[in-house]
């Protein structure tokens, strides 16, 4: 019996779904899984009970929240796919007053159809069983997650930083060599250090490691390399704004003038 799956998108660029739909083995996914809902592949289908629901995108409207709850109620396993779903995504950068200001700038006093909110990761509303990180996720991990579920097992999430893959591939360290603001040390591995392959420092698109992203230690080194608070913060915030401890950790480093 094949597993029933659904793939859903909330507020996002739909890149994760597109990546999932364009993997080399898409035919084998279609053969081995019973796809109940996947808007990008077929406009047919309604939300019904599935074994596994994959959800990309963050919650930024009331409608997202309602839909997410229905998806959760109808899924035995729920997988958050990509940075938007897991951490609120780039759109999660706007918070509080900044959000109000930006909203006014874009919409002025116009009335809009939906009720917009600050971007939230889906874990703020429903229980998430697994995270499939990436912006978008990598092909091998998409297959790995599906394949382990199909076997009745579960995927092992990576719990170590991009540096591990940077080193295994022998890419020169741009933080040491060029004093670049590389966020590899606090970012979840899995991309095989994609950017470092081209000597471009990591911007943290796969999201920070839960509990072990040492924003403070890294900021301390950046500070010693004469990078300013604003610069460091603006880079870390792109994908890290939703980490409660980030601001506090940065404050500790930059306010402590030694």
């Amino acid at each position: 019996m094949s597993l029933k799956i659904g793939v859903h998108g909330l507020t996002s660029c739909y890149g994760c779904q597109l990546k999932m739909a364009s993997v080399k083995e898409i035919i084998n996914i279609a053969r081995n899984f019973d796809i109940k809902y996947w808007y990008m592949i077929s406009s047919k289908g309604e939300i019904e009970h599935v074994d596994i629901a994959f959800v990309e995108g963050s919650v930024t409207t009331k409608e997202d929240e309602r839909e997410l709850k229905i998806i959760r109620e109808n899924a035995d396993i729920l997988v958050a796919v990509g940075s938007c779903a897991i951490h609120g995504g780039v759109q999660g950068i706007l918070f509080g007053e900044e959000y109000e200001k930006a909203f006014k700038e874009v919409y002025g006093d116009k009335k809009i159809e939906y009720e917009a909110e600050i971007s939230h990761p889906i874990k703020n509303f429903v229980e998430v069983d697994y995270n499939l990180p990436g912006c978008p996720p990598e092909e091998d991990e998409i297959i790995y997650y599906l394949a382990t579920f199909a076997l009745g097992s579960y995927p092992e999430e990576k719990d170590y930083p991009v540096c591990s893959e940077c080193r295994r591939n022998g890419y020169p360290c741009v933080l040491i060599e060029k004093n670049d603001c590389c966020l590899g040390p606090l970012t979840v591995a899995g991309c095989n250090a994609r950017c470092l392959k081209y000597g471009i420092s990591c911007i943290g698109c796969r999201g920070a490691l839960e509990e072990i992203a040492w924003f403070d230690s890294l900021a301390k080194t950046f500070k010693e390399k004469n990078m300013g608070e604003e610069y460091v913060k603006s880079r870390m915030e792109i994908f890290g704004k939703q980490y409660e401890k980030m601001e506090e950790m940065l404050k500790k480093v930059f306010e402590n003038e030694d």
Partner: peptide, 13 residues
Amino acid sequence: VEKCFGCGNCTNT
């Protein structure tokens, strides 16, 4: 310990 990133470069090299 406070300075360390836990990045594993030390052991991998």
